[in-house]
Nucleic acid binder design. Structure first.
Lengths: 200, 200
DNA sequence: GTCTATAATACGATAGAC
DNA sequence: GTCTATCGTATTATAGAC
């Protein structure tokens, strides 16, 4: 548990994480980050000589680790992968609701904003999503899915998750996320059932 | 067909549409919009006295209409609703690829950016998504789905669509969108099959 | 209605004292 | 390492000539 923020550097990274998550990259200014973290501007550029972009790259790496940890934690609460993954969507829905739809989807906005406008940040986002999908593929195969299905489904899971976050944030309601979770449950159950039958 | 841009006002709206779609709200400046549309700044504030926000509200309304039209057009190309909806994802994938992942998901970024930071724009986005989902519900019920399933599935379709767009833009590849489309096809087919059996 | 010049403000980034 | 004052350059928006 290194959740406890210790150094000033971590304080900046943690503040940036939250602000990028709720507002996105372009709407978040250095001034806001330093006022939120209580660090003077001079110190900020001492710790992050590459400025806002360098900070974002590090923040996204940390976010990526956090997302993988989120997948692992959700799956650890259930015996079955399918139940674990669906519970992940429910955990995110709860977080969205508790934060008034500001948090729960830390990369969603930033990855879209920078997909075609900032190659370095795009690469960092890509790497983060790649890590999450790799973890999902591993869990799905362990849970009895075929490798081919696992690849398609890991993408579908992340897409459902991100799309559900988008709609829940837009409507300020957990309902879209819950509807998506229900149908993802239907899909995963059915896919595994079909694959199991085919193998017998 | 009022696709042909006539007035200077439409020229501004059309330029804003494209820039909001590819870059988002915060990264798009008035200066860029007027230089893209070739309209002087004074004229811009003459046509849009409420400035950037007023322009965005109108652009989003137009985008919403365009999205509904997109659903109708895609469904019109196929006899079956399920095939029509899946073809919509494929159409978007093609558009993403053809525009180097800049276009194809005109509200995705803006709706996320403004979900908790701008109430007026959020309301406009919500209304646009609501219209799309209403159209989808109508088509699904016509296509043999139960009303209860149609509501859940309309959300799931939009979530898959937006999530697929996010991943395809992040990875600069149509593959995520295609994987999502395949699994959406599986889900919709299976859901209708189950409902049909239950009704007999 | 059309346009240019400019205001007021915020941005990211830096210089340089301590 | 720490901090403040400041630089240039964006931004949105306006004033006022034509």
């Amino acid at each position: 548990m290194k959740k406890k923020v210790r150094t000033k550097r971590d304080e900046i990274l943690y503040a940036a994480w939250g602000l990028f998550e709720s507002q996105g990259y372009h709407a978040t200014g250095i001034n806001q980050i330093i006022s939120e973290s209580g660090v003077p501007k001079g110190s900020f550029y001492h710790y992050f000589p590459e400025g806002k972009e360098g900070l974002a790259l590090e923040a996204i790496d940390a976010i990526g680790e956090g997302m993988i940890e989120g997948v692992r934690a959700a799956c650890a609460t259930r015996d079955d992968v399918v139940e674990g993954i669906v519970s992940l969507l429910q955990i995110i829905a709860t977080k969205l609701d508790e934060t008034e739809y500001r948090h729960g989807g830390p990369l969603t906005i930033v990855s879209l904003e920078t997909a075609t406008t900032n190659e370095r940040i795009n690469a960092a986002c890509r790497s983060a999503y790649h890590g999450v999908q790799a973890e999902l593929v591993k869990k799905l195969i362990q849970g009895g899915f075929t490798e081919s299905d696992a690849r398609d489904l890991s993408t579908t899971i992340v897409a459902s998750l991100e799309g559900g976050i988008l709609l829940s944030r837009a409507f300020h309601s957990t309902e879209p996320m819950e509807q998506t979770a229900r149908q993802l449950h239907n899909l995963l159950s059915e896919r595994r059932r079909t694959a199991t039958i085919a193998n017998n």
